[in-house]
Write a protein that binds this DNA or RNA. Structure first.
Lengths: 221, 221, 221, 221
DNA sequence: TATGAATGAGAATTCATTCAT
DNA sequence: GATGAATGAATTCTCATTCAT
């Protein structure tokens, strides 16, 4: 039953998805929906929670393997993420929509983001240790980086999804659809060098010539 | 009048914002709103279009200066972007919300994304030329990178905005709020090294040890 | 099971009392209720009938004693009535509510009123005989007097009940609550002299000076 | 528009009267009803208030004439009351129903009852003065008497109304219907002698033989 | 031109009532 | 015999949208 709700919410948004439609799509009657979940809000909350849990679980599962280098772990997490978003586009869309519905819902999703931030922060910390000399990054900068990473990932996931839909309603995946691996690789290429540099204490600063536009931080050689 | 609509849509979302409220906030009567714009959808579209135009113009303005290195130009574009999002949070929120509404609206926003993709693509092309030997990037990869960049930027903008709101309703900016420059710097640090590498034909590949985890592409030394 | 229904109907009224609540309060399942009584209406009817019967029985019991003067018999009936309404406020409330529901229910209550009218009529007849020379009262006037009596009694019963509730939820009776005897005495004081006059053929007529504002009827001295 | 609501509420009660029906009966659309009165409760409240005001005004008007004896004033009030209830049976029915709907409404009606109590109390006071030697009645007894009077009046009004309806749907009044004057006379006959006695300090006490079953109070001769 | 007044269509939610077990 | 699970039908209320002026 939640499946039908997730699909409806994903396609039409919270307000536009009517309980009639959801019930019909679920193949049950409206009162039954109300029997299980007291209100539309609760139904939405339930959907959000389920999708948050599924997504977090997927990423967690991807990053479970210990003893890998930081980039490998990030890579694993990203592949898991993109695999999940490709497999459950509606679920992800619900999360996306939840962020635009006031406090109680966005809080739920933010909690998830925070979990990701924690994972990423841990990774960066490990990367820093791996890199020998840790340039201590301000907590705020780490938070900003994590948000950048999550935003980039979300955006890429949506892009990949939209690509996979271009092939009309055909069931087989469009050849335009990038695989989870490809998408993850794009993102790794996009960000890993920068993250690694930061770990080493090297950062980009404005006004220095391109090419080698990095300044060694205080801990640089 | 659009201002009132933008504010309302930003605060309550498309569905929850009622035409009554919008008309009242605009200080005109409802029929007048309908006289100028045929329907709620068109009103929303008009808002979206205006905000898209404003945002694109801001970014264009930022990247107008010719003769700069690619990273400087990107930097300029990003600072312009973050300055704009900080200055017009409601407008940006409307765009954000537009993406979660079906076809007609998201198309509008996608158009914007495409404009940005074009800009970024041009930048990357220039960067590649600057770097001497251009590793031809597949059109698809460029598109993906641009989406990653836009997503990261949007996410950071929202993050910066939420930080600036933590200081209650007080008028003065919260000390937690990162400046546009700081935010842009975070994003440059996040992505420039990777983009530059790609321009040189160097890319991250999975399974190679961390630290120097880049493989020179075919055009590498 | 009827007890639960009576309580529920008394507290929330016919419409607001839900079958769920009644079934739960009765400690049985809803289908069982439907097994015994075909519908909510029938359930309500059953409640009304039971309460009517109980009330009439109480009054009958009070007036059973023969050989008393008419006023003593009325007095006995009234004390019985007020004792009953004080003892079963919920039952009385159901009757009260039944009168505000359309035909099928009010008819039931009217039946009760008619029974009371019969009793009162008999009393008045006896009183007339006792008074020696009976002024034949029109059937309609008797009916009107009986309704007045019943209405006054109901109103006083409710008033007494509301007084007894002022003492909060405390179990002990509020000191404000008049006893059944007091209430009955009030009513006797209110109406007996008038009834007695009528039996004697004396009646109040408008336009005669107060104080002795009674005109002897045709059978008067 | 209130007229339609009053009719509907009178006929079906608060819950059973649907806003659809009310709107249709009023010849307007439902949203218009909501435009004028924010909710069903407010609509009901408005009806109740209007009917209370009308009824109180009618009675007030009836008792306006000063300088009359107490019984004449009561008589005038009662005639006005019964004329009003005969003229606006639906309005009265609404008041009747309002008493069974929890606090906010019953309070409204009780307020009216209190106004009547005040009037009656004043009358009784005057009667006592007229009678020369005032037997001070306890405040509680006066309240009880007033409730008895109001209850009797209501009951008679309803009875008169039901009589007037027996003639089917025919437009002309049923010959069974007692006139306001007749009904008022019945009530005066029912209660005035008793009230007058009380004013003189004479009261009925149980256990004394019928006929002259009044004991002179302390102020009696 | 600008609007006060009005509405059609549809939303969430509840409840008396019934099967299948 | 008793019930958990399920629903058809209504109810209150809202809102985008339009005339008549």
């Amino acid at each position: 039953m939640l499946d039908a709700a997730v699909t409806a919410f994903a396609r039409h948004g919270y307000q536009a998805a009517s309980m009639d439609d959801i019930a019909e799509a679920a193949g049950v009657s409206k009162p039954l929906v109300y029997l299980y979940l007291k209100s539309k809000e609760e139904l939405f909350t339930a959907c959000v929670r389920r999708e948050v849990a599924a997504l977090v679980a997927a990423v967690r599962e991807g990053t479970r393997q210990r003893g890998l280098s930081a980039d490998q772990q990030l890579w694993n997490g990203l592949t898991a993420f993109f695999a999940h978003t490709a497999a459950r586009p509606d679920g992800v869309a619900v999360l996306y929509r939840a962020r635009t519905r006031g406090e109680p819902f966005s809080r739920e999703v933010d909690t998830m983001r925070i979990e990701v931030v924690v994972i990423v922060t841990a990774l960066l910390g490990q990367a820093a240790r791996d890199a020998g000399c840790a340039g201590k990054l301000a907590e705020r900068e780490v938070s900003g980086l994590a948000h950048a990473l999550v935003g980039a990932a979300e955006s890429l996931a949506e892009w990949a999804d939209s690509r996979s839909r271009t092939g009309l309603s055909g069931a087989e995946p469009s050849p335009d659809a990038p695989s989870a691996n490809e998408t993850a690789a794009t993102l790794m290429n996009f960000c890993w060098a920068g993250l690694e540099n930061l770990m080493k204490g090297a950062r980009w600063v404005p006004g220095v010539g391109s090419g080698s536009a990095v300044a060694r931080g205080p801990h640089g050689p």
